[in-house]
Design a protein around this nucleic acid. Structure first.
Length: 472
RNA sequence: GGCGCCGUGGCCAAGUGGUAAGGCGGCAGACUGCAAAUCUGCUAUUCGUCAGUUCGAUUCUGACCGGCGCCUCCA
């Protein structure tokens, strides 16, 4: 079988290109992770879910994966928070990191292979700065800060395609730092201030006490764990500039090799038509989702219903539609599990679906198309199951395909956990209702049903008897 | 000002130079004692507006209108 083509959009070229791992086996990915000073919001998680989708599609394609996601545990906001509260930066970041992993687990985002922390890689960062200084791409300014000299690196701007000469009128005004040679030079290593020392955010370096600049950690950790040229580097679209542009400059400046073969960026999640951002105060978190009883599967459905490179506006209507859609998938999953056999036609339908979904996912992660095909499959398969076939192989095929698709999208809600007390009660009430129905006392039967539904249980009569399920 | 994205039915959202996937919702029917679930049918002569290219454009080009993002805190 010829290996299927796997295509991905590359920000470097702004084109969809054929992708395969450098070594033919393992895809080495670096994803920019969260800054752990506050719980990540759903916008952040949209990006992490896009990366999760990428992982799972890569696995579906048959490649191994080694993904590194950093945890930024030293930066201005962390230091500010620590010094305001009179604690160390690790006292700020440790609990937030815990929340991050719990939220991630709730959203069914698979574990990356590694979650390195910036503060564990200070020597590696210093080594990069030393190389850059040696190569004259970086300089020590009067204020003790080491800057990267962007005009010494000829590829600067190639990712973001920003013309470095043509700066603004309408853009935010630069806060000119007199020590810099060029206003756009960025800090590699910042001289320590008293609050840095107080909060444990300062280290020894050849340039005195200080701390790393924002971009440096990613270059250091990516290259340490994935080599000097990565297969894929991904993150949110806002990281293209300056973060990723600067990562390229410092990494390639230090090694002379391409830093990453592919750059992939996920679009924003909007709320009320504008970017979800902590400073705009329109953020929603995983906790909000939980409080509103939105299942993880529904949020995944919602996110995957739009292509990852397109902005997605979050609204309660859209979320509600996803909750319903995903409920349908859960019912179908249960039906597939309970079925004994199906019509032979189901096998062909499953095969068609499999091919369609795979093709969509391998074409720049087109999850919306994959979801559409999945729902078409559910409808067609339900129709076949209604016909009570006897073909066991067809049923097996349908199960296999459904499981494979769900292994990527992961959009089937978990069944409610067992509740023996509730089960006993419902079964008891159902017996009473059955008696009433047998006596054609429908008023009584209906009042029992209302009673059962009052406890959040839905019942469905069928020729095989009455089934019930806990809602949400 | 520079760079870029988007505008498809009530809501969400795919898509192609040849005549509009899918989901939610709604309507009708089948099934049911009635429901629920499921199935079936219907629900955009039309894809922001106006021009142009073309035998033919929602899909290409241009202008305009509207929304959003980036231009060193940012997923």
């Amino acid at each position: 079988m010829a290996a299927p083509d796997f295509r991905l959009h590359n920000t470097l070229t702004r084109k969809i290109e054929s992708f395969s791992p450098e070594d033919g086996k393992t895809v080495r990915i670096y994803s920019c992770g969260p800054t752990v000073y506050k719980p990540a919001h759903l916008g952040n998680f949209r990006t992490f879910m896009f990366e999760d989708l990428l992982r799972r599609v890569i696995a579906l394609r048959g490649w191994k994966i080694f993904q590194v996601m950093n945890l930024t545990d030293v930066d201005d906001k962390i230091i500010k928070s620590a010094s305001e509260r009179g604690i160390s930066i690790s006292e700020v970041t440790t609990p937030i990191t815990k929340i991050f992993h719990a939220d991630r687990a709730f959203l069914r985002i698979e574990d990356a292979e590694l979650y390195p922390k910036a503060t564990d890689h200070i020597p590696e960062m210093i080594a990069i700065v030393e190389r850059l200084v040696e190569r004259k791409l970086a300089y020590l300014a009067d204020d003790g800060t080491v800057y990267f000299a962007i005009d010494k690196f000829k590829g600067y701007g190639k990712l973001s395609r920003l013309d470095t000469r043509e700066v603004k009128a309408g853009a935010r005004v630069l806060q000119d730092d007199y020590s810099k040679e060029n206003a756009q030079d960025f800090a590699l290593w910042k001289a320590a201030k008293p609050e840095d020392e107080a909060s444990g955010a300062a280290w020894d370096s050849p340039w005195g006490r200080g701390r790393p600049g924002w971009h440096l950690e990613c270059s250091a950790m990516a290259m340490k764990y994935l080599g000097e040229t990565l297969d894929i580097h991904c993150g949110g679209i806002d990281l293209i500039f300056p973060h990723h542009e600067d990562e390229i400059a410092q990494s390639e400046g230090a090694t002379g090799k391409p830093f990453s073969r592919f750059w992939c960026h996920g679009e924003f999640l909007l709320t009320d038509g504008s970017k979800m951002a902590k400073r705009l105060g329109n953020v929603a978190t995983v906790q909000d989702l939980r409080d509103q009883g939105v299942p993880a599967a529904a949020f995944r459905h919602f996110v995957f219903s739009t292509h990852y490179r397109k902005q997605l506006n979050m609204s309660s209507d859209a979320l509600e539609a996803s909750i319903e859609g995903v409920r349908r998938l859960a019912d179908f999953a249960a039906r597939l599990a309970e079925a004994k056999a199906a019509t032979p036609e189901l096998e062909k339908i499953a095969e068609e679906t499999d091919a369609e979904v795979t093709a969509a996912l391998f074409d720049d992660l087109n999850a919306p198309i994959a979801l559409g095909a999945l729902f078409t499959f559910v409808r067609r398969a339900n129709a076949e199951l209604d016909r009570n076939g006897v073909d066991k192989r067809a049923l097996e095929k349908a199960r296999e395909v459904f499981a494979r698709i769900n292994s990527v999208l992961d959009v089937v809600p978990e069944a409610a956990g067992p509740d023996p007390e509730l089960a006993r009660w419902v079964e008891d009430r159902l017996t009473a209702r059955k008696e009433a129905r047998a006596q054609r006392d429908f008023a009584r039967a209906d009042s029992i049903r209302a009673e059962i539904e009052g406890r959040g249980v839905a019942i469905e009569d069928s020729p095989q008897g009455t089934k019930w399920k806990k809602l949400r």
